[in-house]
Design a protein around this nucleic acid. Structure first.
Length: 244
DNA sequence: TCCAATGTTTCGCC
DNA sequence: GGGCGAAACATTGG
């Protein structure tokens, strides 16, 4: 569920809820549920892994964490609803997500240029942010939502493998060519992820994530919990070069 | 059956 | 107060 492309899919799936009057709100989200009653979602946006349900004057930020899910026009039997809307016709139910009310205009708090799936994504801006943090490991940089909003652990592993960069390379040590490749592939792979996820063929296309053997060198992948984020990292010592 | 995991925030400790 | 780690959230597949 969680990485950027899955949120874009959720956004698309929920489009039909826009403009429908909310007759009833339920759920155990720690927000004022009544506030949405009688109103309707005016727009649905996303910023990386954040799903944004827009209302007149405020926004609900939904984050699915690891296990969040949603159902449009149906509900999950026997499961606790985090946030549910009932419309005159149809419903929207969200489970195990972090829900927060945003009072500020979205443009004030979201840097759209950081979202790898947004039209406003700006590689130059990302490069500038990376240059300001030269000591950061690339495996942490890719998971940094201020820089690569929407990139998750799967995408991280695949991008590093594709660009042949060792996850423990430092950002500041990357040659221009590798740095540019990293920026380009972060976006490129994310959109391939989206396509494969829609086709239900995502797992089949993994080359590094959860893999045992490097498809290039046929040697065993290393599996370690790297960086400040200590997330699962699969990499090949031979073809992924270390820059420090 | 058990454990780890596509994620982030919060809390407590030093 | 910074930095770190553990805990919390809760579901699913291997």
């Amino acid at each position: 569920m969680p990485e950027g492309p899955s949120i874009v899919i959720a956004k698309e799936a929920m489009q039909e809820c826009i403009g429908k009057k909310i007759l009833k709100v339920k759920g155990n989200a720690k927000i004022d549920l009544q506030r949405m009653e009688g109103k309707s979602i005016t727009d649905i946006k996303s910023w990386g892994k954040h799903l944004l349900l827009c209302f007149e004057g405020f926004t609900l930020r939904v984050h699915f964490l690891m296990f969040g899910s949603y159902v449009v026009n149906n509900s999950k039997e026997g499961r606790v609803v985090r946030l549910g809307f009932t419309f005159k016709k149809g419903e929207l139910n969200i489970y195990t997500a972090a829900v927060k009310v945003i009072e500020e205009p979205l443009d004030e708090i979201y840097d759209w240029t950081a979202d790898v799936m947004n039209q406003k994504w700006d590689a130059k801006a990302a490069k500038k942010k990376l240059k300001a943090l030269p000591g950061m490991l690339v495996c942490d940089a890719l998971l940094n939502q201020e820089i690569f909003s929407g990139v998750g652990n799967i995408i991280k592993n695949e991008v590093l493998f594709r660009t042949k960069i060792h996850p423990e390379s430092t950002v500041g040590a990357l040659p221009v060519k590798q740095l540019n490749a990293l920026l380009k592939e972060a976006v490129n792979y994310t959109f391939e992820f989206l396509k494969w996820k829609k086709e239900n063929t995502l797992k089949k296309h993994w080359e590094a994530y959860a893999k045992k053997v490097c498809p290039r060198d046929k040697v065993p992948f290393k599996k370690e919990y790297l960086g400040k984020t200590k997330r699962r990292t699969f990499f090949c010592d031979q073809c992924q070069l270390m820059y420090t």
